[in-house]
């Protein structure tokens, strides 16, 4: 199936929007009418056809524009992409994982041919045709992680495993929800999670870490995380807080539907074969409130989740200033009817 890539922006005039098909396949993160942190890890198995879980790496209509936005971020701030020297093998592992998956599942758009360590990569949407030697950095225009993640949607962190912990020793992070690679690089799992409220006392990080230390090759896992963003801005980094922080004060009852976005991160984790590192992918999906309420179940449910969300979580996620306006908007789309269990829209 050929994807029609959209031309749109995630800054300045913010022309981003979702097609009706993109709305229907949105990874809505709530399977019931309330939300609290949990160790919500499941196997990253192929999901329903056309859903974002159909393939290990999801490419969608926003691909070309997202890659353009990433290039802009990197031009202004090269430190969004960093890698410690011992992560080079993990970088090659990541390049293999992404190229293999994209070429296998989107053959109209990407082609990979391998002859021993001589590889040939074709990326049609971005007009790239590159022959290179796997394992030889000098044959690519950028180091392998940077090269491949400039061509793949989602942020990526590479975690080295040692001393029974995971260490954030490399990453390409340009579409983050208010955290910084430059700040977190070299930290371990417990250290970079320190700012998260409540979850530590619930024992969530301890269990999640023990689970991940045993993550096996060939058995990837995933989880969903969510927050909200005012304006469809991918780069909500602490580095650029001065550019977007004030957006939160611009929400009014009149513009909620267009300005406020639910932002869902599909996070997947793979054990990498040659390096024994783990890759953590953070693929952000955004949907406007007026797009979301076209699915009646989602409108009802998000209203209830947001209305009843614990204040600690609302504060941490930065929703406090515009939560009331958003809840009021969603209330108009909640008739109080019961919602069916599970994430997916009800059949029409």
């Amino acid at each position: 199936m050929t994807i029609q890539f959209k031309q749109e922006t995630f800054r300045d005039d913010f022309t981003f929007s979702n097609s009706p098909e993109a709305i229907r396949r949105f990874p809505f993160p709530f399977d019931k009418d309330e939300y609290m942190y949990a160790v919500n890890i499941e196997q990253h198995m192929p999901g329903p056809v056309k859903s974002p879980f159909e393939f290990p790496i999801d490419i969608d209509e926003h691909y070309v524009s997202e890659m353009r936005d990433r290039a802009l971020v990197l031009k202004e701030d090269p430190l969004r992409c960093q890698s410690l020297p011992h992560m080079i093998t993990a970088e090659w592992d990541l390049l293999e994982l992404l190229m293999e998956s994209m070429a296998k599942n989107y053959p109209e758009h990407f082609t990979l041919t391998r002859d021993g360590d001589r590889w040939h990569w074709i990326n049609r949407p971005l007009g790239i045709d590159q022959a290179f030697t796997f394992g030889d950095v000098s044959t690519l225009p950028q180091p392998p992680m940077e090269y491949v993640t400039r061509q793949c949607q989602g942020d990526f962190a590479l975690l080295d495993q040692r001393l029974d912990n995971l260490w954030m020793d490399a990453g390409m992070i340009t579409t983050q929800a208010d955290w910084s690679l430059d700040f977190d690089i070299g930290m371990n799992f417990m250290e970079w999670h320190a700012p998260v409220p409540l979850a530590h006392d619930m024992g969530i990080f301890e269990r999640a870490l023990k689970f991940l230390l045993n993550l096996q090759q060939g058995r990837p896992v995933r989880r969903l995380n969510w927050t909200m963003t005012v304006n469809p801005r991918l780069d909500t980094s602490p580095e650029n807080y001065h550019k977007w922080g004030a957006d939160r004060t611009t929400v009014t009852p009149e513009n909620v539907g267009d300005k406020v976005h639910l932002r869902v991160e599909l996070q997947a984790l793979w054990r990498l074969p040659r390096s024994n590192a783990i890759v953590f992918s953070i693929r952000a999906y955004m949907i406007k409130m007026n797009e979301l309420v076209t699915i009646p179940k989602w409108g009802r449910r998000l209203h209830r989740v947001l209305r009843d969300l614990k204040p600690e979580l609302a504060d941490y996620k930065g929703l406090t200033r515009y939560r009331a306006d958003t809840v009021a908007y969603l209330a108009k789309h909640d008739d109080g009817a019961p919602t069916s269990p599970g994430f997916f829209p009800d059949p029409e």
């Binding site: 160790v39 499941e42 689970f211 896992v221």
Partner: peptide, 9 residues
């Protein structure tokens, strides 16, 4: 089940 690895509960 979710994780099949003794973590999710």
């Amino acid at each position: 089940f979710l994780c099949r690895g003794g973590a999710c509960g």
